[in-house]
Amino acid sequence: MSIEVKGVSKRFGDFVALDDVNVSLPTGQLTALLGPSGGGKSTLLRIIAGLDSADTGTVTIAGTEATHLPPQKRNVGFVFQHYAVFKHMTVAKNVAFGLEIRKRPKAEIAAKVDELLRLVHLSQFAHRLPSQLSGGQRQRMALARALAVEPTVLLLDEPFGALDAKVRKELREWLRRLHDEVHVTTVFVTHDQEEAMEVADEIVVINEGRVEQVGTPDELYDEPANDFVMGFLGDTTVLNGVRLRPHDVHLSRAPELAGAAEGVISRLLRVGFEVRATVLTDDGEEVHVVLTRTHARQLELREGDRVWVTPASGAASVPPMVATAG
C-alpha cells in the first residue's frame, strides 16, 4: 500500500472536517476522493501532503510513518485548484523550482525541465511568465512542476475545478493517459462524479467527514453501499419503496410481470437520445423512468397513457431512507 491513513480526525473549531477516517490507497493507482463540497475530502488530501495536520490518527506514505513530517520532507507532489503558480518565475523556472531546491546539477535540471515541458505540451512557452498562459496551460505547468521532483505520490486538489467545461473534459482525459504513462500513485479530489468515474481506478466516497464507500467505479455504481452513494453517483427514483436508477425501471404497456405498479404517464420529455417519463402510480408514487428514444418510439408513449412499471432484472437498488452513516 502506498498511502495508509489510519484513524484520522480533524476539527476546525466546532466543525468536524474528518471523523475517524481509514483509507488504504494502493501503489500506482489513480484514486479519486469524491464527495460534496465541504465533505472533508480536500482536508484529507492536505493532511496526506502535510499541509494540514490531523488532530488524531496516522499517515504512512510508502511505508514511511509521515504523520509528523513537514510537507517538504514527504516527497509528495501537490497540484492546487487555483494553480498556485510562482508569478515572477518563467514557466521553465517554475518547473525547475523543486529540483533547484534539491541542488541537482544544472544540466540535469535543464534536461528534466525540457522533458516535462514536452510531456505537458508547453515546450514553446518555456520562457514565458505564467500570466501569459491560459488557465489550462497554467494547470499543466503546475502538474509538470509537481512531477519534476519525482514524487512518491501525486496529489491533486480539484485540479480542474477552476477551468471551463470544455478544457476540463480535455484535461481529465489527458490526465488519465498521462497516468498510464507515468504510473505515479495519484490521488485527486473532485466533487464531480462524472470526472471521478471517467478517470479513476478506484473511488473513495467521502461525506460529512466520513468514508461512505471505497470501490471501483463499477462497484460503486452497481453496488452502492447506501442511499448517499447511490444518490451521489447518479439520478435515482423510488419504486415500490425501493430506490433505484431511472434507467433500471422497466416500463410496459401491459401488466407483464407480477407485482408491477400501475400508473399514468404524467410527463414526457425528450432530451437527445433519451426520453424521460414521469409515471404517477395508483399508489401515489411519482416514478422517474429513462428510456432510449428507440424504445419509447416502439411503445408509442403519450402523456396520459396507462403503463406498468417494475424494477428491471439486475437493477442496482438500495432501500431508501436508510441512515447514511457508514
Binding site: 487555483h82 510562482f86 523550482f97 531546491i101
Partner: peptide
C-alpha cells in the same frame, strides 16, 4: 495566495 507557499513547501523548499 498561501497556496503558493504550500506549493513551494511540498516541492521541498
Amino acid at each position: 495566495d498561501t497556496d503558493v507557499e504550500d506549493a513551494a513547501a511540498s516541492l521541498g523548499s
